[in-house]
Amino acid sequence: MGAIQVTGLGKAYRQYASRWGRLAEWLLPGARPRHQEKWVLHDISFAVAPGEAVGIVGINGAGKSTLLKLITGTSQPTRGTVSLQGRVAALLELGMGFHPDFTGRQNAYTAGQLIGLSAEDIHALMPEIEAFAEIGDYIDMPVRVYSSGMQMRLAFSVATCKRPDILIVDEALSVGDAYFQHKSFNRISEFAKQGTTLLIVS
């Protein structure tokens, strides 16, 4: 069973008046700061219990995607901590980690290993990945020829080919056709019934 604990989380980015300010800070580390901090998240705390489903809703620029990146570890917080229990599968940015010159099959192996699956696991699950994605012969073509919907189909199929303890989904499912969105939400619902912890942003 998966659980998420977020405590005092904050993220600030440095803003420089010019590119020379950044260079000056690098070259003169003891000199006065030449940047201002822009906080996009400040003092966020919450917990998602095992088997619970939580949705985060907000306008563009509210920091939703930044929060998910901090939770999944693709970005580091300025302050605070994140604690995860269990195997995590995340769909953040569409096709994130896919190499455009590799085939869908090659990218599936790479993406699967990034979420903790072995090459043997992926090989055994590949028929299911192909069947769920429903992209046909495109599985053996370079990802650069894929539509955004096809990328989403493959990314979702790989991320969910084995039930995770925690599933984190950004707005990736807003891309593509209604048929596959419905199919994806059915799989997510099945995971929830089996005890997967869900964190979804819209």
Rank of each mutant, 00 (worst) to 15 (best):
M1V: 13
I4C: 03
Q5D: 14
V6F: 04
G8P: 04
G8N: 15
L9S: 01
G10T: 09
G21F: 07
R22I: 07
E25M: 11
E25V: 06
E25Q: 13
P29A: 12
G30M: 12
R32V: 11
P33Q: 14
H35F: 14
V40S: 06
L41K: 12
D43L: 06
D43N: 14
I44R: 08
S45D: 12
A47C: 14
A47R: 14
A49K: 14
P50I: 02
E52D: 07
G55D: 08
I56H: 02
G58F: 00
K64F: 06
K64M: 01
T66K: 02
L70Y: 09
T72Y: 05
S75C: 12
T78M: 08
T78A: 11
R79T: 15
T81Q: 15
V82T: 06
R87V: 08
A90R: 04
L94F: 04
G97C: 01
F102A: 02
G104E: 10
Y109D: 05
L114I: 08
L117N: 01
L117Q: 05
P127H: 07
E128Q: 15
A133T: 00
G136F: 12
G136L: 12
Y138D: 13
Y138P: 00
D140R: 11
P142R: 09
V143E: 02
V145A: 13
F156S: 10
C161Q: 04
P164T: 10
D170Q: 00
A172W: 02
S174L: 07
A178T: 14
Q181R: 15
K183W: 03
N186F: 00
R187F: 09
I188V: 09
A192L: 10
Q194M: 13
T196F: 09
T197P: 03
I200P: 05
